[in-house]
Simulated assay, not measured.
Amino acid sequence: MPYRAPAICTYCNQAHPAGVKCERALQANRERKARFDQKRPTARQRGYTAQWERESKAFMAVYPSCRRCGQRAALVDHIEPHRGDQELFWRRTNWQPLCTPCHSSAKQSAERRDQKEK
């Protein structure tokens, strides 16, 4: 079975097996995420309040299956990112039930792709 060639790391200029990151790259990634998290508003500030918890639980009682894979849904996702728009945030037609793997992988990847295209 063929293997991918080692890749040259842009942080340490050393060759690493494909898919393996050096400690310097991992540290830089942690620092980048920490800087982003400092600027990001808290969940409550973004609108995820006790009222949201009640409404999302009621929504999942009606729609218990993940819209993408059919497994048991774990959360209510906004189809179109609301970006602070409260009208869009509370519009139920913009809600969809998702399981954690579908939300954390496929949906997030699609949103990142969409952002890069804009």
Rank of each mutant, 00 (worst) to 15 (best):
77 D>S: 07
77 D>H: 14
77 D>K: 02
77 D>L: 01
77 D>R: 05
77 D>A: 09
78 H>I: 06
78 H>M: 09
78 H>F: 07
78 H>W: 08
79 I>G: 05
79 I>S: 04
79 I>M: 05
79 I>Q: 04
79 I>K: 15
80 E>A: 13
80 E>Y: 06
80 E>G: 01
80 E>R: 14
80 E>V: 15
81 P>Q: 09
81 P>H: 07
81 P>L: 07
81 P>V: 08
81 P>F: 11
81 P>K: 05
82 H>I: 07
82 H>Q: 02
82 H>S: 11
82 H>C: 11
82 H>T: 08
83 R>W: 14
83 R>C: 10
83 R>G: 11
83 R>F: 13
84 G>V: 06
84 G>T: 01
84 G>Y: 03
84 G>P: 03
84 G>R: 04
84 G>S: 01
84 G>N: 01
84 G>K: 04
84 G>L: 03
85 D>N: 15
85 D>C: 09
86 Q>N: 03
86 Q>P: 00
86 Q>V: 10
86 Q>A: 14
86 Q>I: 03
87 E>C: 08
87 E>K: 13
87 E>S: 14
88 L>A: 15
88 L>D: 02
88 L>S: 07
88 L>N: 06
88 L>P: 02
88 L>Y: 07
89 F>V: 08
89 F>I: 01
89 F>D: 02
89 F>Y: 04
89 F>C: 10
89 F>H: 10
89 F>S: 03
90 W>P: 10
90 W>R: 09
90 W>F: 04
90 W>C: 12
90 W>I: 07
91 R>T: 15
91 R>C: 12
91 R>H: 15
91 R>Q: 14
91 R>S: 13
92 R>K: 15
92 R>D: 05
92 R>M: 08
92 R>S: 02
93 T>I: 07
93 T>R: 14
93 T>E: 15
93 T>Q: 14
94 N>P: 08
94 N>D: 09
94 N>I: 12
94 N>V: 12
94 N>Q: 07
94 N>L: 12
94 N>H: 06
95 W>E: 09
95 W>P: 13
95 W>Q: 04
95 W>Y: 14
96 Q>P: 04
96 Q>M: 08
97 P>F: 00
97 P>C: 01
97 P>L: 00
97 P>T: 06
98 L>A: 08
99 C>L: 09
99 C>Y: 02
99 C>G: 05
99 C>W: 01
99 C>S: 01
99 C>F: 02
100 T>A: 11
100 T>D: 05
100 T>P: 00
100 T>R: 10
100 T>N: 07
100 T>M: 00
100 T>E: 11
101 P>I: 00
101 P>R: 02
101 P>W: 01
102 C>V: 00
102 C>S: 00
102 C>L: 01
102 C>R: 00
103 H>Y: 00
103 H>G: 03
103 H>A: 09
103 H>K: 00
103 H>P: 05
103 H>L: 03
103 H>Q: 07
104 S>W: 03
104 S>Y: 04
104 S>G: 15
104 S>V: 04
104 S>N: 15
105 S>A: 02
105 S>R: 13
105 S>I: 04
105 S>E: 12
105 S>V: 07
105 S>H: 14
105 S>G: 13
105 S>W: 06
105 S>L: 12
105 S>P: 00
105 S>D: 11
105 S>Y: 14
105 S>C: 08
106 A>V: 13
107 K>F: 10
107 K>E: 08
107 K>R: 14
107 K>L: 01
108 Q>G: 02
108 Q>N: 13
108 Q>A: 15
108 Q>Y: 03
109 S>M: 10
109 S>C: 06
109 S>P: 00
